[in-house]
């Protein structure tokens, strides 16, 4: 029988940390130890922050984002351009676009993409809510979906669903990433970049 080296509370903490993305059992132990060593300035504030977040966490009824207020901070922001909705698959994609700071419009989180393999059809995605939102003052819907077969199939499906509204629909361009070396790019990306070349 394995000898116990710490109490059940710490074991539980390590087990839960090990479920986090990027952490395995070993790194979870390291993280737990760091927390325990810095009880006052890290463990307790983190614990409080997590409790508060868990208590107040809400799905935004408008866009599907996660926030502690509903509607979410983005949807409530009056300075945002309300004529544009950027459609993303997951909240992580929304965060990535916000990090880049290039979008001043509103968002809509679909909650995934059409995936016959996983049995995800249109009913499992927040498409009806998007159709309801794609009305004036909205003039453009940007489909910022993944450049995969499933992502692009979803984009076409969404476009059809909102076609009747008359709102302009756009998609992200594909091409050479910043810092990308042509030699290391896959054929598909290169082909897309060539097709979408522009005059200099």
């Amino acid at each position: 029988m394995a000898r116990k080296t710490q109490g059940p509370e710490i074991e539980r903490l390590i087990q839960l940390l090990a479920r986090m993305p990027g952490l395995g059992p070993r790194s979870a132990r390291k993280a737990a130890l760091a927390l325990l060593k810095r009880r006052a300035d890290l463990l307790e504030p983190l614990s409080r922050a997590m409790s508060e977040a868990a208590e107040r966490l809400r799905d935004c009824p408008v866009c599907g984002n996660l926030d502690t207020v509903a509607p979410c901070t983005i949807c409530s922001d009056e300075r945002r351009d309300r004529t544009m909705i950027v459609v993303v698959e997951e909240i992580g994609d929304l965060w990535a676009l916000e990090r880049a700071g290039v979008v001043n419009g509103l968002y809509h989180v679909l909650g995934g993409h059409l995936s016959p393999l996983d049995g995800i059809g249109p009913d499992q995605l927040a498409i009806p809510r998007l159709v309801e939102r794609a009305v004036p003052p909205v003039t453009e819907v940007l489909l910022a979906l993944n450049a995969t077969v499933e992502g692009q199939s979803t984009a076409h499906y969404v476009r059809e669903q909102i076609a009747a509204s008359g709102v302009a629909v756009s998609v992200l361009q594909q091409g050479v990433p910043v810092g990308g070396e042509l030699d290391y790019l896959d054929d598909g990306t290169l082909a897309a970049a060539i097709r979408s070349r522009r005059p200099l």
Binding site: P116, A147, T148, V149, E150, Q152, S153, H156, Y157, E160, Q174, D186, D187, G188, T189, A191, A192, R195
Partner: peptide, 17 residues
Amino acid sequence: AAEAMADGDPGRLAALS
């Protein structure tokens, strides 16, 4: 897949899937 995506033909993407 990349060819179908670049083409923008939804039927072609659906055919692949």
